[in-house]
Design a protein around this nucleic acid. Structure first.
Lengths: 240, 240
DNA sequence: GTCTATAGAAAGATAGAC
DNA sequence: GTCTATCTTTCTATAGAC
């Protein structure tokens, strides 16, 4: 029951109808879960529309229609289009944040960077719409994301910069500019979500198969590791 | 007279006023150039608005206002919003295409790839708005760009893939997946245009200085060359 | 070529019956 | 919680005077 990523109008309508004829409107047991269910459902649909048309280009009517609901219901759950958009941005950031944690899974730069690249590639595959919403927001000037960028992303980046500089000092990473490396990782991995349509057009295929996406992931990991000059530390030569 | 990249409303209004009081409307000498001048001016303003809000999010009123013109004048020069958008996309592609030529400047992969990365970074710096329009269009599904992608970008990519495969066979490039390398180059270089707002927020600076952009360019070139394992061919060991 | 006025559709949001 | 009807604003595009 609770996988709500159905973003096609048809499936959604069907789902809505299912509960509709339980006409007794006040079963206390279900009240809270109706709200939760409708909110997540609307959020998933909103993510798809915001991804495709950006904040200004998206209309609440389109989102409601995709959700199989009247426009008024959308405004019942989310007072304004902006409030809905904020919730979507927040959701997307939480996943970004989860992937970011993989960077600290190991002190070996090969494992840490490799694992992070893998996590970001997996995210691009699993939730391309979220990545697109993020990209759209940044391209439009990031006006609604200053808080997230300054209070969450910036501190994360700064601590990772310090870590990368330590690796360089220890000789397990080439003397790269840490920010340039991180931007390269973000840009390259997110490209497979954001520029999906271009990749499809250029490859002539309808979609990248799971197998070829995995192969591409391996290749991206190899290339990023080569770019960064990462190597696993010799277990004995660490003098400090 | 003919540098029309002024995209601020104020400057544009001033420019418009200049010619306005030459009230004789039919000097044959000036007719054609008025059209050309207004068209390029509107195109520059449209590029800025489309970059910031995407095709659906942009309004002809905003574009006209930025150009310092009544909305009706915009429709006099460009019949529909879509026609205007197409012209912008076409302009942007022409510059992409010019940068693409640098790939063939040399048969040495270090020079060819390095030069191409430099050209793309320079383009990101010189015309970030164009890059954003492109990115927005792809994120939105590339519906208005299928022609350019299939007839212009795809053939270019395929011939470059062949070239890269030859380099690999000759041993002057690591055995990389050519498409993955090209996507990495595009993603990384365009990131400095498209994600400008994020970079600004994370660096805490208002804008990347010319000097630090040049340093970043050098670093990106080094990292891409390392990722691709490119090396200049020994002048003697070419047996064919 | 320029510009005011406006048509006709679609936008965000709300009222109020159920 | 749901949904029809509607308010107000803004949208693309055009008419028609100058």
């Amino acid at each position: 029951m609770r996988d709500d990523d159905t973003t096609t109008p048809a499936a959604n309508l069907a789902m809505r109808q299912a509960g509709a004829d339980a006409d007794a409107a006040h079963k206390p047991r279900r009240k809270a879960s109706i709200r939760a269910s409708n909110e997540t459902h609307l959020l998933a649909c909103a993510e798809a529309v915001f991804a495709e048309r950006g904040f200004e280009g998206a209309s609440t009517a389109q989102i409601a229609e995709r959700a199989g609901l009247p426009k008024a219901n959308l405004h019942y759950y989310f007072p304004t289009k902006l409030a809905l958009y904020w919730r979507v941005l927040d959701d997307v950031f939480e996943e970004w944040n989860a992937a970011a944690d993989t960077f600290d899974a190991s002190d070996d730069p090969v494992e840490a960077i490799g694992g992070y690249v893998r996590a970001k590639m997996a995210l691009s595959r699993r939730r391309p719409l979220g990545s697109k919403v993020w990209a759209n927001e940044i391209i439009s000037g990031a006006t609604h994301m200053q808080d997230i960028l300054l209070k969450r992303v910036k501190p994360w980046m700064e601590s990772r910069v310090t870590l990368i500089e330590r690796w360089i000092a220890e000789g397990v990473l080439a003397p790269v500019e840490p920010r340039t490396l991180l931007y390269m990782i973000w840009a390259t991995t997110q490209h497979y979500a954001d520029f999906e349509a271009q990749i499809r057009a250029l490859s002539g295929k309808r979609a990248l198969s799971a197998a070829s996406f995995d192969a591409t992931t391996d290749e991206v990991v190899r290339m990023i590791l080569r770019a960064s000059g990462a190597r696993s530390p010799d277990s004995r030569d660490r003098s400090a």
